[in-house]
């Protein structure tokens, strides 16, 4: 009896989380998969017709939005790394006992509602605002130059909004780097750069890897930034899905598009994991 209990215990432990996943992830996912192959509308109802053309039609009509979303996702993710790494590095190694304060400061803006932050952005970046106004009056920028309602604004917004998802894993990875290991590198004739390049960087790559996954996926499927900061040419696939679902009640199309997006993201992540997520990469970086 006691042994049986012992054998069952681990399964009992995963039960709450497992159930949660099944109810709120697996079931909707299966259901969505089923909806994505239906035809119909809200008034007449939807029928399960195994209508695979929902997928091909979606790609036909919105292929350019998929490409744009992946492209924006890529740029924003790379920008996130470029911004997050130095910040995380500084906090992990240079901030001393004020680490948590700095980390908190970095995350502080994200305690404020996204919409408020975006409105602040719009105030700052408006055509005649505090940034662009003076530059224009000094003739450093053409008169009708604008940042808002452009791809640049969308990518900047995405970068800014998902920065913490990059900073935190990198910070955690850097924090875990044993400073004695870094000292060992110095001791073995590595200068600052070599110690970083051969030891700190490879040891923090798992954090970058986690950060990329945590950033790239939500960035690519985001729709808020494009709708608030973008113009007519910056629609992302998330906006399309949102419109199809909420405005048009085209549940089947919306589901098919979501699944296509999911497949593309998984593909991208797997390719990335295969290319960069292995031991060999870390090892090569260390040589």
């Amino acid at each position: 009896m006691r042994r049986l209990k012992g054998a069952v215990a681990p399964y009992l432990l995963i039960l709450p989380g497992g159930l949660w996943l099944v109810v709120f992830f697996a079931v909707p996912l299966v259901y969505m998969a089923s909806v994505s192959l239906m035809t119909g509308n809200l008034i007449d109802g939807f029928e399960q017709t195994w209508h695979w053309r929902n997928y091909t039609d979606g790609l036909d009509v919105y292929g350019d939005k998929f490409v744009r979303s992946l492209w924006y996702g890529l740029i924003a993710t790379v920008a996130c790394i470029a911004l997050a790494y130095p910040a995380a590095y500084w906090i992990a190694f240079r901030a001393g006992r004020h680490k948590s304060t700095w980390l908190f400061m970095l995350l502080l803006p994200f305690f404020v509602s996204f919409v408020l932050r975006t409105i602040a952005w719009k105030l700052v970046l408006t055509d005649q605002g505090p940034v662009l106004g003076p530059l224009k009056s000094w003739h450093l920028l053409p008169k009708d130059f604008h940042v808002l309602d452009s791809g640049f604004a969308v990518v900047s917004g995405l970068t800014y909004n998902f920065l913490p998802f990059m900073v935190l894993p990198i910070y955690v990875a850097l924090e875990r780097v044993d400073h004695r290991v870094v000292e060992a590198a110095y001791d073995l004739y590595a200068g600052r750069f070599a110690a970083f390049r051969r030891v700190v960087l490879p040891l923090s790559l798992p954090g970058v890897f986690a950060g990329v996954i945590m950033t790239f996926v939500p960035v690519t499927s985001d729709y808020v930034n494009a709708s608030v900061l973008g113009g007519p040419d910056n629609t992302m696939i998330g906006n399309v899905i949102q419109t199809e679902y909420f405005t048009n009640s085209e549940y089947a199309t919306a589901s098919a598009l979501s699944f296509t997006l999911m497949a593309l993201l998984l593909l991208g992540i797997f390719a990335y994991a295969r290319a960069l997520g292995t031991k060999d990469v870390l090892e090569a970086a260390g040589r």
Binding site: V27, V35, M38, G40, N41, L42, I43, D44, G45, E47
Partner: peptide, 12 residues
């Protein structure tokens, strides 16, 4: 959505 069954009945 997930609460309904394998088709979504029309209500027009």
């Amino acid at each position: 959505l997930a609460a309904s069954a394998c088709s979504i009945p029309g209500q027009g």
